[in-house]
């Protein structure tokens, strides 16, 4: 009894808080996604009262709307494509960095990790804003690019407010999430394995592709999930850097809640987005575990 009391005292308060302010709102969101929009925006009452008494007034219309409107499906596909590209670019950029840290002298590793995550600690909006300056039409990068394009007789292009800017922003914001799990994995590799592979005649590429990379798959997977999920649901990066051409599903969700004020449809989009993100991550994890079963 004493043990039960102790356990309840410890886990009770945080459990209660998270139940009320995390789980309950999420569940309400699921219910709202089956509701009707209110006449003044927001949400219509979820139950009706008539001759038969109270009954729930729910609908599958929002989901039907989503599936039958190519606009939203295409937007989801586009967001998926951006998130996949972001994940791949992060992976390619993070791998050598993580490897460099893991292979460095033990005394320097902690400092190097701190240096890598330090920019990530600065405010998210500041990091996005920095790219507004760099990609802006008056900055050197745009001027140089358009100068070269002019030589070939092509008209000027805008780097800012484009899908390109969105990708750069997404990569920049999420890169540390890829570096850290990769490093955590690579650090644990036994250097003896590389020596053994080399002794057995493997060249540099073979060492990497047949020893290091397969062993690092759990790290690759963890990093990819940490980049893919937030990138898919991004709304601030496309909102600031994307202009009209670069919007993602997160922007439409924001519009449904704050501008169109169609909560049920906004909820539907949010639920679809979350299930899609978790589903893709789950499938990726399953594939890696199946294909790399002997390594992972």
């Amino acid at each position: 009894m004493n043990r039960f009391l102790q356990r309840s005292l410890l886990s009770g308060p945080p459990l209660l808080y998270l139940l009320v302010f995390f789980l309950l709102p999420t569940l309400i969101m699921v219910v709202v996604s089956f509701g009707w929009p209110g006449e003044q925006g927001g949400l219509a009452p979820l139950w009706l009262r008539d001759a038969q008494g109270f009954h729930l007034d729910l609908t599958l219309d929002n989901y039907a709307d989503f599936v039958s409107t190519t606009l939203y499906l295409r937007l989801l596909a586009k967001s998926f494509w951006y998130a996949v590209l972001t994940t791949l670019i992060c992976l390619v950029m993070a791998y050598p960095l993580a490897m460099l840290i893991a292979k460095s002298d033990k005394r320097h590793r902690n400092l190097m990790v701190l240096l890598v995550i330090l920019p990530f600690w600065s405010n998210f909006l500041i990091r996005v804003y920095a790219w507004m300056i760099i990609l802006g039409p008056q900055a050197g990068l745009s001027q140089a690019l358009n100068g070269v394009l002019a030589l070939f007789g092509w008209g000027p292009v805008s780097l800012l407010f484009s899908p390109f800017a969105v990708l750069v922003g997404l990569v920049y914001v999420h890169l540390p999430f890829m570096i850290l799990p990769l490093y955590a994995n690579l650090e644990k590799h036994d250097p003896g394995l590389m020596d053994a592979a080399r002794d057995l005649g493997a060249n540099r590429w073979q060492c990497f592709w047949r020893v290091t990379f397969p062993l690092s798959l759990p790290g690759v997977l963890a990093g990819s999930a940490l980049v893919f999920i937030p990138a898919l649901g991004a709304f601030a990066v496309p909102d600031i850097l994307g202009g009209t051409g670069g919007i993602m599903i997160g922007n439409v969700i924001k519009m449904q809640f704050l501008e169109a004020r169609d909560w049920p449809f906004g909820s539907t989009l949010s639920i679809v987005l979350t299930l899609f993100a978790l589903g893709v991550t789950g499938i990726a994890a399953w594939l890696v575990r199946r294909r790399g079963g002997s390594y992972v």
């Binding site: 459990l15 995390f22 709102p25 999420t26 309400i28 969101m29 937030p230 649901g233 993100a277």
Partner: peptide, 20 residues
């Protein structure tokens, strides 16, 4: 409940609290 908020898109947390 501790890990889930970190594993779902932040925008879902934001809008669900708004509705709540």
């Amino acid at each position: 409940l501790v890990v889930a908020p970190l594993a779902i898109p932040e925008i879902l947390t934001g809008v669900s609290l708004l509705v709540f």
